[in-house]
Design a protein around this nucleic acid. Structure first.
Lengths: 240, 240
DNA sequence: CGTGTCTTTGATAATCTTCAACACTCGTGG
DNA sequence: CCACGAGTGTTGAAGATTATCAAAGACACG
């Protein structure tokens, strides 16, 4: 629960390019190092923050995968995203000074704590940081537009194909294979994210495997035919 | 197309409370007035900006209602939101310096042009403005979480009820009736936003009317029984 | 080595979409 | 001023997709 106060350095972090603005001077990076002074470990299935908690900081993921989910009054919940190394969580908390969703680690994880008031101060002086922060938030808005398109217009097969392709793409950007991946989330969680029931997710996996587009062994997935998967998205259509 | 360069003043705008940070000093407001120097009229069915266009500015809506929509490669599109007076559009453009969605006026409209670089500069000096900008972006993220919950977990009746209740609530905040509203968008557009076909929207309207929860005359809607509408959302459930 | 969680698969049911026909509204031009 | 037509909205019947319910299998963890 309590942040581990370890001295760490952005200037020395191998995730810098994913996480932080490129083009910060050494001097600026040094100042950033003074703001980001603690990390926090989050154990599997525990929350980094929860709906209703006071907002203090953004979190940059160092290791591990998180899910964020919102909950309706009646208890239904919706996974709004899966986040991995280099990505930022906690942006939801800014508007009302309280978090409005849960961020839960899907495996043991570690995050850098970015105290928001201090980030704000520093970004007033470091233009590149200010713009970077704006871009991070804008990117999240654009990502969610994509999810809305998925939820609003796509069918089960398209949703799952889009999900898998998005995952491998992000993993590839982190140096992992572009054809093999290990799912850190359950079928239920995938389903929640994609607006499907877990049975539908499972069936769709099976169908993809049957048609030799992927191989599935539990949470291990190998993408055998990327092109056919992609083909499920861009209908060779007359343009609707 | 070309912005109308009229001298206008935020300090004198009746939308200030919706649109701009409360708690700006008179001095700060004066500086803001120097940044926001032009308005732009947008005629019904024309775009304020389009997917792919270079990003220059955010826009604060003065009058009229807009829709924003994203388009997939295959031509399917998804309305991502309806925006009205006091709300900000264009945040999607920050991340890649290009817009990724269309903003189209549903009726003749007018917006204030907020040149983004100048807003950035000013917000470096005016802390309240900086924080306000962050809040605006965070609010949009949280709003989209709500839409994802709607698209991912709700059925047609719940979606439409949520949509209507959200609309009247925002209209009420702008001084309009809390029971009567005029829809500026077609059934098709409502359907796109809610992830439904226009026929389903129409049928659901009819069902609500049949059960005396609302009265519908074309785009005119009167909410007769708010409580029953709300009841459609919060299932009196066991709260699993 | 059992227990609980997660996953798969089948049969049935509910919801929404699709296709089709017709009604209504509003603006335009004869 | 009226008629016409395009766009919009309503409604019905049939069909498709996904959800629900149920049962059994696989795996992971203690």
């Amino acid at each position: 629960m309590s942040p581990t106060t370890i001295k760490v350095a952005c200037s020395n972090c191998n995730l810098r390019e994913l996480c932080m603005p490129i083009g910060l001077s050494d001097e600026d990076l040094a100042r950033l190092d003074e703001v980001i002074t603690s990390r926090r470990k989050v154990r599997r299935k525990t929350a980094l923050f929860r709906n209703g908690e006071k907002f203090h900081a953004l979190y940059a993921i160092r290791t591990g995968v998180f899910k964020t989910c919102v909950t309706a009054e009646d208890g239904r919940d919706q996974v709004t995203g899966f986040q991995m190394a280099g990505e930022i969580v906690g942006l939801d908390g800014i508007v009302n000074d309280h978090h409005t969703c849960d961020a839960v680690a899907l495996e043991d994880a570690e995050v850098c704590v970015l105290p928001f008031d201090r980030i704000g101060e520093l970004s007033r002086e470091v233009g590149a940081l200010q713009h970077h922060l704006h871009r991070v938030m804008s990117r999240e808005i654009v990502r969610e537009h994509g999810v809305m398109l998925l939820l609003g217009t796509m069918r089960a097969e398209e949703r799952l194909a889009a999900f898998l392709l998005n995952l491998v793409q992000r993993l590839q950007a982190r140096g992992f294979s572009r054809s093999e991946l290990v799912l850190r989330m359950t079928r239920q969680e995938i389903g929640s994210y994609l607006g499907l029931k877990l049975e539908t997710v499972s069936r769709t996996f099976s169908r993809f495997a049957e048609e030799n587009m992927i191989e599935v062994h539990q949470r291990h997935v190998r993408i055998v035919d990327v092109d056919r998967l992609r083909g499920l998205l861009a209908q060779p259509g007359t343009g609707f």
